[in-house]
Write a protein that binds this DNA or RNA. Structure first.
Length: 354
DNA sequence: AAACTAGTCAACCGCTAGTCA
DNA sequence: GTGACTAGCGGTTGACTAGTT
C-alpha cells in the first residue's frame, strides 16, 4: 500500500481553525461541483488547505445533515449501547446516530460519557463493574468521590460549562453560541445561512441566494438538543412556536409536536417539543419569565410580520438580532432604535455571547 | 490581578483499505 | 501486479476557555 503524500510536504498550506471565508469558499465549491476530487479541490476552490483538511472540514462540520449541539439523553444511551457492541469503532457508532460525526461522538465519549461511567463504577471499556467486590471509590479521583452518582446536576454543570465556552475565531463555536442562546426562538435556517454567508466575522453584506447548506442544531436551555436540516426560508423567526400553548392533540406520547399537524417551520418533531423549546410552556405559566427573552415579547403580530418580511438576508437578520440583544440588556424597557449596519456589529454580538 | 490547572473540542496525524488505470 | 490516488478510521494535539489558587 502506498502512503498518501503528507500535507506537510506541500508548502504554504494553512493549518488550524477554519475561517468563515474558507468555509464559504469550500461550501461554494461543493455546492457547484459536489463532493469528491479532494486532492485538486483546494486549488480549484482557492483554498490554501490540503485536500484532506477540506474533506474533514466538510465531513465533520459543513455537511448539511450534521447535527450540532448537545447530545440528547437518547443519543447518549445509544452511544453507550453501541459502544458496548462495537468498542471504539466510532464510525460504526456514528452510523447508529444519524447526523452525528464519529469525531463528535468520540469527543463526547472521552469528555463526558467515559467519566460518568467511571463515576458510576462502570468500566467504560468492558461496560462491566469496576473492581467488582471492592470499594469502587478506591480507583476514583478524589474529587469524584464527593459525588459518586451521576445526577442531573452533573449533567447541568457539564452543559452549563459547555454553554459558556467562547471563541472569537471559530465559526462553529459562534454558531453553537447563537444556537444556545436563540435556537429555540428562531428558524434554524437562519443559523444555517449565517455560516453559509461567512458567519459573524464576515465583513461584507450579502444577499442569500444559496440553496445550501449547513444545518446546525439547537442547544436548548432545558438540556436537550436536536437538529435537522432546513432549506432556507423567508420566515426568519419562528413565529408562534414559542409563546403559544400548543394543541395537545398535536403531540405524541413523548410530548413531541406532531410535525404533520404543526404549522411551525421546524420539521423535526423534537425541535418542536414544547418542553424543550418553550420556556413559558414548561409547567404551564408558572415559569418566571424574567430571565427569558422571547421575540414575541417584543413584537406584536404586525411587527413580527414586518420583521419577517424585512429580514430578507442574513445581514438584516443580524441587525435585528443585535437590536434584540440591546433590548435584552435593557430588559426590553428602553426603546432602542434599530442598529444600522456597522462593521463592528458582529463583534458586538460576539461580545454579548462572550 | 495574575498564574496556574483542567476541561472541551476542532483539527490534525498516521495509518489502512479500496478503487482504478 | 503496481502505483497513484482517495476515503475513512482512531488516536492525539493544541488552542481556547472557565475555574481555582
Amino acid at each position: 500500500m502506498v502512503r498518501t503524500p503528507c500535507c506537510k510536504a506541500e508548502l504554504g498550506l494553512k493549518k488550524g481553525a477554519w475561517t468563515p471565508e474558507e468555509d464559504q469558499k469550500l461550501l461554494s465549491y461543493l455546492n457547484r461541483h459536489g463532493e469528491g476530487g479532494w486532492r485538486t479541490l483546494p486549488e480549484k476552490a482557492g483554498l490554501k488547505r490540503c485536500g484532506k483538511s477540506c474533506r474533514l472540514r466538510w465531513a465533520n462540520y459543513l455537511r448539511p445533515d450534521i447535527k450540532r449541539g448537545e447530545f440528547t439523553e437518547d443519543e447518549e444511551c445509544s452511544i453507550i449501547s453501541l459502544h458496548a457492541l462495537h468498542g471504539n469503532k466510532w464510525s460504526a457508532i456514528a452510523r447508529g446516530l444519524p447526523g452525528r460525526t464519529d469525531n463528535e461522538i468520540k469527543n463526547y465519549w472521552n469528555t463526558h460519557i467515559k467519566k460518568r461511567l467511571i463515576q458510576k463504577g462502570i468500566d467504560p471499556v468492558t461496560h462491566k463493574g469496576l473492581n467488582s467486590g471492592t470499594d469502587k471509590s478506591e480507583n476514583l479521583p478524589e474529587k469524584q468521590n464527593v459525588n459518586q452518582t451521576t445526577t442531573d446536576d452533573d449533567l447541568d454543570n457539564d452543559k452549563a460549562k459547555k454553554n459558556n465556552k467562547n471563541s472569537g475565531l471559530s465559526s462553529a463555536r459562534f454558531l453553537n453560541r447563537v444556537a444556545n442562546r436563540f435556537g429555540k426562538r428562531i428558524n434554524q435556517s437562519v443559523l444555517s445561512e449565517i455560516i453559509a454567508s461567512g458567519g459573524p466575522l464576515a465583513t461584507t453584506s450579502h444577499t442569500t441566494t444559496t440553496t445550501t447548506t449547513t444545518s446546525v442544531s439547537v442547544d436548548s436551555e432545558s438540556d436537550k438538543s436536536t437538529s435537522s436540516s432546513f432549506a432556507p426560508t423567508s420566515n426568519l423567526l419562528c413565529h408562534g412556536t414559542v409563546a403559544t400553548t400548543p394543541d395537545s392533540s398535536n403531540f405524541d406520547v413523548d410530548g413531541n409536536l406532531n410535525p404533520t399537524s404543526s404549522s411551525s417551520t421546524f420539521s423535526d418533531a423534537s425541535v418542536n417539543n414544547p418542553l424543550m423549546y418553550c420556556d413559558n410552556y414548561v409547567g404551564n405559566n408558572n415559569v418566571d419569565d424574567e430571565d427569558t427573552i422571547e421575540f414575541s415579547t417584543f413584537l406584536n403580530d404586525e411587527d413580527f410580520m414586518m420583521l419577517e418580511e424585512s429580514c430578507v438576508d442574513n445581514t438584516a437578520f443580524m441587525k435585528e438580532l443585535t437590536r434584540f440583544l440591546h433590548e435584552d440588556e435593557n430588559h426590553g424597557v428602553v426603546d432602542v432604535p434599530p442598529v444600522y449596519e456597522r462593521q463592528d456589529i458582529f463583534d458586538e454580538i460576539d461580545n454579548y455571547f462572550g
